[in-house]
Simulated assay, not measured.
Amino acid sequence: MIHAEVTLYPLKTQNASRVINNSIETLDQESVEYEVGSMATHVHGNEDSVWNSLKSLFDQAQTSGGEVSMVVTITNSAKH
């Protein structure tokens, strides 16, 4: 199991919240557990599922808002 902390930064948009929320909704289609925080979203699951969910987040953000930066911290530690 791996854990990822991910933050999306939509650029050049007046609708950053919409872009972020649309991206987070893609996690419902993935085989991961996630918690949305005020500054980051924490994603937990098997390695392939977490990597796929990160790609889904980024792809949706691009589709919704164009330019986006995504910062991710990943660990395989049981204590995260």
Rank of each mutant, 00 (worst) to 15 (best):
N46W: 06
T73M: 13
I2N: 04
Q29H: 12
S17A: 13
I74D: 00
T41D: 09
A40L: 02
H80Y: 11
D48K: 14
E25W: 01
V50F: 01
S69E: 12
N76W: 06
N76E: 10
V32A: 11
M1F: 01
G65R: 02
Q62C: 13
L11P: 00
M1P: 04
V32D: 06
K12H: 13
T26E: 05
S56Q: 14
E30D: 10
A16V: 08
S17H: 09
Q14N: 13
S69G: 10
N76V: 06
N21G: 02
S53A: 15
L8M: 10
S17L: 11
E30F: 10
E5I: 06
H3N: 11
L57H: 06
S17N: 11
N21Q: 12
M39F: 15
K79N: 12
D28F: 10
Q62W: 07
T75P: 07
T7K: 10
R18W: 03
A16R: 06
S23E: 02
V50A: 00
L54M: 12
T26C: 08
T73W: 07
T26I: 01
L57T: 06
N21F: 03
E30V: 11
P10T: 02
V43R: 01
E33V: 09
E5H: 09
G45M: 01
T26L: 07
V19C: 08
K79L: 11
D59R: 15
T73N: 12
L57R: 02
K79I: 12
T13E: 06
M70V: 10
T41H: 00
G37I: 07
M1N: 05
K55W: 12
S23V: 07
I20G: 01
T26D: 05
L27W: 04
L57W: 04
S53G: 11
I2K: 11
H80D: 01
Q60T: 10
S77F: 10
D48V: 09
E25M: 07
E5G: 09
L11T: 03
I2P: 01
Q14E: 13
Q60I: 05
Q29E: 14
Q62M: 11
M39C: 15
V71P: 03
N22A: 08
G37S: 09
A16G: 02
H3D: 01
P10W: 02
V43D: 01
